[in-house]
Design a protein around this nucleic acid. Structure first.
Length: 648
RNA sequence: GCCGGUCUAGCUGAGUUGGUUCAAGCGUCUGAUUCGUAAUCAGAAGUAGGCGAGUUCGAUUCUCGUGUCCGGCUCCA
């Protein structure tokens, strides 16, 4: 039989009989690799391990701990789960089962939703099927054959999927025992390769993500190449839960929800309010330097203005219903833009005044759907770090870029490193309904934004169909501790509403021009930003932001007077200090302060009282020794003033 | 809004296959202790099974409704 030459990644060669599979090559290399390998790349293309090699080629073997291998493992485990579900519930119809970051899900059309007990049963069945070592085989067929195959199996959803694939394409299926699934592949070659998996949760999910379609039942799960990796992942999930802003917010008494107030309407407790105040000072400082003017606007406004802006058309569903006052409909405001437009137009504007930058921590109310309220991240009452910039076409790029630069300044201050800038564009299909029908203006404005971003050297991804109804926008996406993605900062271009409001400025020639409006909220809302910060810092805030900055811990009642004096001195220096005057031992006081995540602990005993010093202990740093009280205070004042990130 | 689940003291959290007064820890309060870098001891109090109906001799436990929150889906100016 003819041999073929296999080139491995280290450029070594193996000569093997034609028809040898990647698994076969792995077997030759070693038994450890043979067990661990899950998928292969043949001349750069991902292939199954039992793909017969027909000619000289390069071959790369991937174990489950590589990106390619893990993805294959995840996908194959989704199939294994579907097989288990079909075996337990023969009436179940399978739909789609993709991989996601560190996991997979599969949607089923079943008679009864999955309960936790059922999930356990499915997992047990999966273990059984995995152990039984079933071969997984690829089969290729035409779209027509595929349709009749899945029709014969009563898999309506698969038929629907195939019918939307190009009829000339070759369709592939994967079969393990009596279970066949439509899939592009690749897959592991045997169910015994799947060992360390866990089903995590189940939930409802609409077919094709459309709420008009039937609700399917989704199961989420994950798999790893080793027991340790799975354990580590599950521990990470647990750790994430500990950073959950809802948990820490309660522990640190930052905010609360109350049934008598209403869902999505947070109460800001004194500690959380301290953080709000600090953020507002930061925003005002930053905006003052950047040439913004502060404004204030009412919470309640006539409906006519929202008709004019178009918001009633587009967002009535998520606005609190109107209230009739003196025969006129009023709304609580869902956004600040129309008010700022009215401030802009309250006086005549010249090109010399431009750009006009109006900022406000505006309080808004949005009737978000009940099912999507989520801690502080999605609420119904919110205060936006809002501003509107009115500028000329010429000024646009620079203004837009400066807003983006402001984000980055903030991100640096808070040490936010993981984020994505998303340029959200319109979708031609929805001009006239979801988006204002100005096809050329859309393209033009989008191009401006693109150029502004490119010139500013920002990295971004383009996302069609995500724009606001009045223009393209930049969304900055971040991830919460529990892995949810959020839009934090946002920056939008509005080429429509200024015209509707007859906003104008007089240009050099004395002609009236319409300004472009940039909506921006770099710090998002207080609610979302603080929610994010809680998870980002795990409650261990930088000193300037911490609700309680210093705890003074007297060793005993004998030094109470001295401790009280130190505490007062700190408070006089605008430092948020508390005195722990309980009769606990010092160890208990320290423990208590540590649990409360207090950054600076000042331990004072007779020695300190005698020398006018304090003994400093800081969270994360531990015992830092003794220091003169005035020197310490000036150090802390500086750290706070600089909004320093350091804990020590 | 949709699918599923949750709800026990300020917090965490047991238990009750329907049966007198429902644990415990933390916290709180009182007293003692006066202590050197993550828990001193003792005692006490506490509007505790979301809410409303129903079944029952009897419901925290079963049924129905309703609210909240959670996991997702959908949505997000």
């Amino acid at each position: 039989m003819k041999n073929i030459k296999i080139t491995l990644p280290d450029n070594s060669h193996k000569s093997v009989p034609i028809g040898t599979t990647p698994q076969g090559v792995a077997d030759i290399i070693g038994s450890g690799l043979a067990r661990a390998v899950v998928v292969a790349k043949v001349d750069g293309d991902l292939k199954d391990l039992n793909f017969p090699l027909q000619q000289d080629c390069s071959l790369e073997l991937f174990t489950g701990d590589t990106e390619e291998g893990h993805d294959t493992l995840l996908h194959s485990t989704a199939h294994l789960m579907a097989q288990a579900v079909k075996s337990l519930f023969p009436n179940a119809k399978v739909t789609i089962g993709p991989t996601i970051e560190n996991g997979f899900y599969y949607d089923f059309d079943v008679d009864n939703p999955f309960t936790d007990e059922v999930l356990e049963k499915i997992e047990i069945k999966m273990k059984e099927l995995a152990k039984s070592g079933q071969e997984i085989n690829r089969n290729e067929l035409s779209a027509k054959e595929a349709v009749s195959l899945f029709k014969s199996m009563n898999e309506d959803y698969k038929v629907e999927i195939i019918e939307q694939i190009n009829p000339d394409d070759i369709i592939s299926t994967y079969m393990q025992s009596d279970f066949t699934d439509l899939c592009r592949g690749p897959h592991v070659s045997n169910t015994s390769k799947i060992k360390h998996f866990k089903l995590l949760s189940s939930s409802g999910a609409y077919w094709r993500g459309d709420e008009n379609n039937k609700m399917l039942q989704r199961i989420y799960g994950t798999v790893f190449s080793s027991k340790e990796a799975l354990k580590k992942h599950l521990e990470n999930l647990e750790e994430a839960k500990r950073r959950d802003h809802r948990k820490i917010g309660k522990e640190m008494q930052l905010f609360a929800f109350d049934g008598d107030i209403g869902p999505g309407l947070p109460l800001w407790l004194p500690n959380g309010t301290v953080m709000i105040e600090e953020l507002e000072v930061l925003a005002k400082d930053t905006e003052k330097k950047a040439g913004y003017s502060q404004v204030r606007t009412p919470h309640l406004t006539k409906g006519t203005i929202y008709e004019k802006s178009g918001h009633l058309d587009h967002y009535k569903e998520s606005m609190y219903p109107e209230m009739e006052i003196d025969g006129v409909d009023y709304y609580v405001k869902p956004m600040n833009c129309p008010h700022h437009h009215k401030i802009y137009s309250s006086i005549p504007r010249s090109y010399r005044d431009m750009p006009v930058r109006l900022s406000e921590y505006g309080t808004c109310y949005r009737y978000e759907k009940s099912g999507q309220l989520f801690g502080l991240m999605r609420v119904r009452s919110l205060q936006m770090n809002d501003a509107h910039i009115y500028c000329t076409e010429k000024q646009f790029k620079k203004e837009f870029m400066n807003v983006c630069k402001m984000y980055l300044e903030y991100f640096k201050l808070f040490n936010i490193e993981k984020y994505t800038m998303r340029l959200s564009l319109h979708d031609k299909e929805h001009l006239g309904d979801k988006y204002v029908n100005e096809p050329e203006l859309w393209l033009e404005t989008e191009q401006w934004v693109r150029e502004a971003l490119d010139e500013g050297g920002f990295n971004y991804v383009e996302v069609p169909g995500e724009a606001a109804f009045y223009g393209p926008k930049i969304d900055v996406q971040v991830w919460s501790a529990i892995g949810k993605e959020f839009t934090l900062a946002t920056n939008q271009v509005d080429f429509v509403v200024p015209k509707r409001f007859d906003l104008a400025y007089k240009d050099e020639n004395g002609d009236l021009q319409t300004p472009i409006c940039i909506h921006r909220a770099p710090l998002s809302t207080h609610e979302r930003f603080i929610g994010f910060l809680i998870e980002h810092f795990g409650g261990n805030f930088p000193l300037w932001l911490a609700p309680t900055q210093v705890a003074v811990l007297p060793l005993s009642d004998k030094v109470y007077e001295y401790a009280k004096m130190i505490t007062n001195k700190l408070i006089d220096s605008n430092i948020r200090a508390v005195l722990d005057d309980r009769s606990d031992k010092i160890g208990a006081k320290i423990r208590n302060a540590e649990i409360k995540r207090i950054n600076v602990m000042l331990i004072v005993g007779p020695k300190e009282a005698e020398n006018n010093t304090v003994s400093v202990r800081r969270k994360f740093a531990g015992d830092l020794g003794t220091i003169d009280q005035d020197m310490l205070i000036s150090q802390l004042v500086k750290e706070i003033k600089d909004r320093s990130l350091t804990h020590s």
